[in-house]
């Protein structure tokens, strides 16, 4: 098991220009790396005999638009874990909100294939070199990326109403007659 500081040191020695930022004060220490180098760094983390990050626990996207504390950006977060040595590592990539793209890591960990599809589906982040970059949860012809903070839900999808119907209370407040119900009496 290696401490975060050791892992960070190894990385900094190996990729001095690609490590943009790092923090060890927070709950889980993380490293911010340059988008273009992420595949290379991941491959190194997995194959380096001293690190051996053999599993990708999670791959998430985050949209920081509208955050009170962070500058506006998209982020892709890799949670790595070494089942052999039991150490962890958080890798982050910061991307602009427009035309976000970064290389895929599916050749490093096979599971990244689906995780990246999900991030693409939800945030519209493009993974270069991905073998099958389609939407995974939303229908293929869905417009826009739902988990972006400025996403506006469409009113219809293929002619079907897609937006949530008004709640009972809301309808009652608008004066609709809903039959015998508690909202009517008031």
């Amino acid at each position: 098991m290696k401490q975060a500081s050791e892992i960070l040191q190894t990385l900094q020695e190996q990729f001095p220009d690609q490590i943009l930022k790092s923090s060890q004060e927070c709950l889980q220490p993380f490293v911010v790396v340059a988008p273009a180098a992420v595949a290379e760094i991941c491959a190194f983390l997995k194959n380096d005999p001293g690190l051996a990050f053999d599993t990708l626990m999670c791959l998430s996207g985050v949209d920081y638009k509208g955050s009170k504390t962070e500058p506006e950006r998209l982020e892709v977060v890799y949670h790595l874990f070494s089942m052999r040595d039991r150490h962890k590592m958080v890798l982050k990539v910061e991307l602009p909100r427009e035309d976000a793209a970064l290389p895929t890591v599916e050749t490093v960990w096979a599971i990244a294939n689906w995780h990246e599809r999900e991030v693409y589906d939800m945030y519209g982040i493009h993974f270069d070199g991905h073998s099958d970059l389609r939407r995974i949860l939303c229908p293929d012809d869905w417009v826009d990326y739902p988990l972006r903070k400025d996403y506006v839900q469409p009113q219809t999808y293929r002619g079907m109403p897609a937006a949530a119907e008004k709640q009972f209370a809301e309808r009652a407040q608008e004066g609709e007659d809903l039959g015998t119900d508690p909202y009517r009496a008031g």
């Binding site: 999670c58 985050v62 955050s67 504390t69 962070e70």
Partner: peptide, 21 residues
């Protein structure tokens, strides 16, 4: 199996991001 929650808080009352693995 392993159910992972990735929570990001910006100090507010509602979570800024909840990702489920």
């Amino acid at each position: 199996g392993e159910l992972g929650y990735y929570l990001v808080s910006d100090g507010g009352l509602i979570p800024f991001r909840v990702k489920v693995k």
